[in-house]
Amino acid sequence: MLSTMPGKESLVPRIVFYVYAISTIIPCCMTIVSLIPTLFDISIYLKPISTALSIFGVLLLTYIFYIALNYIRLHKLRFSDFINRSEIVVSDKISEIDASSFRAILEIMGNRIRRIPRRTSPIFIAPLVSVLYIIGHVTVELASRYVLEITPEAFLEFPLSSEALMEFVMYTTTMSIGSILLLVSVILCIYILHILNRDLYELESIEDEMISTLRPLASKIGLKLPYREVNIAKRNTILYAILYIVTLGLFGVYWVYRVAIRDPEEHVKEDYKVYSELPKILAITPQ
C-alpha cells in the first residue's frame, strides 16, 4: 500500500529552492533599484551580475518545475494504480453488499482520475521555460547592440534609406521576437504554477472522497481513519499572476514555494497518516 505513495526523494529539495530564491530575489531588487533615477548608473554596472543570476534562477526553476510536475504525474499514476488493485476485505462485519458498493465507488474515482487532463511530459514542458527565457533574453540583448541614431521627428521628416530601413526592420523584428519569447516564458511559468496547484488539488479531493466513503466501513471494524489536518488550497491564479507582475517577479518566489514545495510536502505528510491505516481494511492485489 505504502508503495503507492510518492517517496520523499521525489519532492523538490529545499536546498534547490533556497538557491533559486536567492538568485531570483537579487535581480528583482536590482531591477527595482534601477527604477530609482539616482541609482540608475549603479544598476548598469551590476547588469552582468543580474543577467547571470536571472539565467541561473531560471535554470533552477526549470529543475524545480521538472521535479514538481513529475511528482504530480507519478502520484496520479500510483493513485490510479492503487484504485485498480484495491479490494475491500469481506468479513463478518463487512458484507458482500458493502464490498460491491465500495467497488462501484472506486470505479467512479478511477473515472474521475482519468478525467484530470493529461499534461505534457515534464521533460518537455519544464526545460521549455529556460529555453524560451534564455533565447528571449539573448535576442533582446542582441537587439540592443543596434546603434540607433534616430528620433520620431526625424523618422517623419526624412525618409529612411533602403539600408537604414533594412536595419530598422531587423532591429524591430529582433527586439519583438525577444520580447515575445520572454513574455511566453513568463506565461508558461504561470501556466505550470497553475497546473501544479490544480492537479494536486484535484487529486487530493478525489483521495479525500474515497477516504470518506471508506470511513463508515472502517468504523464497522473499529478502525478510525484520520482526517487531513491541512488541505491544499485552490489558489486564484489570476490574482497571483497580477501580484507576480506587480512585484516584478518577487511574489513568484512565494508562489513557487507554495505550489512546488510546501503543498506537495504537506500532501505527502497527510497521505502518510491516512494510507498507513488502509491495509487494515483493504486487500491490495500484488503487482
Binding site: P48, T51, H137, E141, L142, R145, E157
Partner: peptide
Amino acid sequence: ITVLLHYPTLLHLEELGRIVVPRP
C-alpha cells in the same frame, strides 16, 4: 551566456548594425 552577452568583443558583437537617419 553572461560572458558572451556582456563581453561582446569575444564574439565581435559590439555593434550589430547602425541605423542612422539625419535629424533636423
